[in-house]
Design a protein around this nucleic acid. Structure first.
Lengths: 144, 144
DNA sequence: ATTTCTGCAAATGCTTTGCATTGCA
DNA sequence: TGCAATGCAAAGCATTTGCAGAAAT
């Protein structure tokens, strides 16, 4: 098991406390935070950290493939430190983003389907994203 | 076959030239324009039209269910006048958005799968979106 | 020692808002 | 006529940029 520091070093980017902190948050949290949420989480431990640095850092991490960027809906881009292909849920009421561990990604993330898409549209597919939109259990409970 | 005017009337919203124009563009174009692109297309025929009106109009059309909003990546939200569930392609190089007519939506847009998702995550699913990311044929051709 | 990153502040750019005017019903 | 939509300009936010100082290799 590699440490965060080793992972960053492997990607050949400079290891800084800010990068370790952002990446740690994305690895450990399951809430798919946006930049502002990451910034708020960091503030207690890194009061000097700038929002601009968070923007720059998620961009670097995305570029080297350590995080994936999700386009869900309101509230800006979300970031996920779990980079294996998997589907996501999105609650249209509270904007919560969740992972789907087991079900459907293998349906859509496979070479055969990618070939079919290429045959129909010409797109050389590199990845697929599947999002389920709806209302989460918590929000449904609150609606009564 | 209903006219654009009749369709708007059915949705119980006021029929204005601007709304007809925006909706017509979204019905007729296959390029999934963003607000700015819609505005540029309208300019020749509606030189007085304001960008703010385009924003307001796509919002109304979305609310009444005449268009769907897509979150692809760069370049802001995209709009699609074809509201049947279908998957989309996105070219990471030129930002082009395309439809997939035949292939995969039935895989992901069905009650059985929605129930599975609900069982795993608690999300009461209303709709699913499947996006394929990659490089389109035109951009691949240009890369040689 | 060199290169790259950080933090700040300013700038950018997309989207929304407020309000007077216009236009639909 | 009454209410809603438009167009304009201003305001609001999220994100990016430039740069001097700080930190990593």
């Amino acid at each position: 098991m590699q440490t965060i520091e080793e992972i960053l070093r492997t990607k050949k980017i400079k290891v800084t406390p800010q990068r370790m902190a952002v990446y740690t948050i994305l690895k450990e949290s399951k809430e798919h935070p946006n930049v502002e949420m990451i910034y708020q989480k960091l503030k207690p431990n890194y009061p000097a950290m700038s929002l601009a640095t968070v923007y720059k850092t998620v961009d670097v991490l995305k570029t080297v493939g350590l995080v994936q960027e999700l386009n869900v809906g309101e509230g800006g881009l979300r970031y996920d430190g779990w980079t294996d292909p998997h589907s996501h849920t999105y609650c249209e009421k509270c904007n919560k983003v969740g992972d789907i561990e087991n079900i459907p990604q293998d349906f859509v993330q496979n070479e055969k389907l990618f070939q079919k898409v290429k045959a129909e549209t010409g797109l050389e597919v590199s990845t697929a994203q599947l999002y389920f939109y709806g209302i989460c259990a918590d929000c449904r409970a609150q609606m009564n």
